[in-house]
Amino acid sequence: ELVLALYDYQEKSPREVTMKKGDILTLLNSTNKDWWKVEVNDRQGFVPASYVKKLD
């Protein structure tokens, strides 16, 4: 499943990933309501769920 980055996000820990507004990311896990695991540029990590939106 793919998600769209709604905002820029700068990683604050090694478990997170940086994304730019408009990026298309692969959603790996959305079981946590606050932090979703995504893959971007061959890196996996977490981003705030409120910063991304699922693409239909």
Rank of each mutant, 00 (worst) to 15 (best):
L27I: 06
D34M: 13
V38T: 01
V52I: 09
E39S: 13
Y51K: 09
D56L: 11
K53C: 15
W35M: 06
L2E: 06
D56A: 12
F46C: 12
L4S: 05
Y51H: 15
L55H: 06
L6M: 09
L6C: 08
G45L: 05
G45A: 03
K37I: 14
K20A: 09
G22N: 06
L2G: 04
P14N: 12
D56S: 13
R43D: 04
N32A: 09
N32L: 09
D34F: 15
V47W: 01
W35A: 02
D8M: 03
F46M: 08
R43P: 00
L27N: 02
P14C: 11
V40I: 15
R43F: 05
L27T: 02
N32E: 10
K53E: 14
S13G: 13
D8Q: 03
T26P: 15
W36R: 01
K33M: 10
T31S: 15
N32M: 09
S50K: 14
E1H: 14
T26I: 15
Q10F: 15
L4E: 12
L25K: 00
W35I: 03
D56W: 10
V47S: 00
V38H: 00
V40Q: 15
R43S: 07
K33A: 12
L25R: 01
V40Y: 14
S13I: 04
K33D: 11
N29C: 12
K53M: 14
V47Q: 01
G22H: 05
E39M: 12
D56K: 11
V38F: 00
S30D: 15
K33G: 10
F46E: 04
P48D: 03
M19Q: 02
I24M: 07
L28T: 05
N41I: 12
V47L: 03
T18P: 07
D56M: 13
S30A: 13
E16K: 05
L28A: 03
Q44R: 11
D34I: 13
I24V: 11
V52Y: 00
Q44N: 08
K21G: 06
A5F: 01
S30P: 07
N32C: 10
K20Y: 10
N41V: 12
K20S: 09
K37M: 15
E16L: 05
K54W: 08
Y7I: 08
G22W: 06
S13N: 12
L6V: 07
K12Q: 14
K53R: 12
K53N: 07
F46A: 02
L6Q: 05
D34Y: 15
M19R: 00
T18F: 05
V38A: 02
P48F: 02
E11T: 08
E16N: 06
M19N: 00
I24F: 07
V52F: 06
Y7F: 13
V47F: 00
I24R: 06
L27M: 04
Y9R: 02
K12P: 04
E1D: 11
A5N: 00
G22K: 02
V17T: 06
E1V: 14
K54V: 13
L6K: 05
V3K: 00
K33P: 14
A49E: 05
N29S: 13
K12V: 08
D42W: 09
D34A: 09
K53S: 12
E11M: 12
V52R: 00
K54P: 11
D42L: 10
D23Q: 15
I24S: 04
G45M: 05
E11D: 05
K21F: 05
Q10I: 15
